[in-house]
Design a protein around this nucleic acid. Sequence first.
DNA 1: GTCTATACTCTGATAGAC
DNA 2: GTCTATCAGAGTATAGAC
Lengths: 205, 205
Amino acid sequence: MLKPRTRIQERNSKAILEAGLDVFSQHGFRGATLDQIAEVAGLSKPNLLYYFPSKDAVYLALLDHLLDTWLDPLRLMNPKGDPVTEVLSYVRRKLDLSRDYPRESRLFANEMLQGAPRMLAAIEGPLKTLVDEKAQVLRRWIAEGRIAPVHPIHLIFSIWALTQHYADFDVQVCGVLGPGHDPYAEAQEFLTLLFRRLLNPTEAT
Amino acid sequence: MLKPRTRIQERNSKAILEAGLDVFSQHGFRGATLDQIAEVAGLSKPNLLYYFPSKDAVYLALLDHLLDTWLDPLRLMNPKGDPVTEVLSYVRRKLDLSRDYPRESRLFANEMLQGAPRMLAAIEGPLKTLVDEKAQVLRRWIAEGRIAPVHPIHLIFSIWALTQHYADFDVQVCGVLGPGHDPYAEAQEFLTLLFRRLLNPTEAT
DNA sequence: GTCTATACTCTGATAGAC
DNA sequence: GTCTATCAGAGTATAGAC
């Protein structure tokens, strides 16, 4: 990406990334075209390529920013807080992310469906490291009898799956629910109940 | 699709659909190319187009077959069976589907991410009808106090999300778990526990 | 039924005027 | 910095020989 030096450059770079997010998140890397991205950004194709040297560069700039945003909610899970509250807050933050940044969620999903050719290193590196770290926290909570004994990594997977579903499968969710629903409000309630029941240490297995 | 009349036609039609499943499920409709599909199928591009008149036709043939397979596990949920057992069996069938037909799962996911341009009618029609019907069964079970009171449609969403995640995000699941894991066996155990705890009617909310 | 050859469009990227 | 013009290659699809 061109290092922005003027207001125009700032504005156009941002417009391109916005447009790229629109198009890549809907059609994946190969299905997206520079024509379409340029049109959405309100620029000519050569002008777009003045700011980013290639299609790949636009995509990589988006991915680069994505992982951090995506993992922040998990990072915020506090090892010193109340276990059930911490997990429920994490679920809420992750669901808010799906609601407020559905395109980012879909971009991520598209990359995964393709086999994560441009993100594999990040998954096996920083992402795995963070998950392992938080899984340790969950294991401690389990050992202390403060949450029910469940597989900690699959617990994290379940949070990812359940929250991202509402962004990635939005069409299906809305189509099946029909009109007059607030999917995210209902999901918030449902997921709170679900994880409360799953993790409550006083329940029998 | 050409109506198969000979063994060769039978074989080639199937090879094309297999190859199309490979490529479309990974790259989505626009990202897939006939070149690639033909190569995977072991045919020349014009020969492929002898069996299917267009790229769209291959894709539609795949989608057409997909929805039925996809909804069968839900259809099998028996209104006269034991509620918790029925839901857990449904979860197991759906998870088996993810394990045995991951490409079908990804094809479906790709179509959803694109906004379901070729499946919207099916979602708002047959799919919604089936879900509404089964949601009624769940509501009855709740009213009879045989499962805990949860939003029936979001319960179904949660089963979809949790099971499909293991197929669609396979790279991530395997990358984070690291070697020496059997994701589906672990998921089976985790999900059984999760839904048992969620639905058990004797638990307090 | 299958292939070669090809028409024609789209796509990513570059050159060069302004 | 932005545009028009353009290139080379890939893409879908068709024609026609065998």
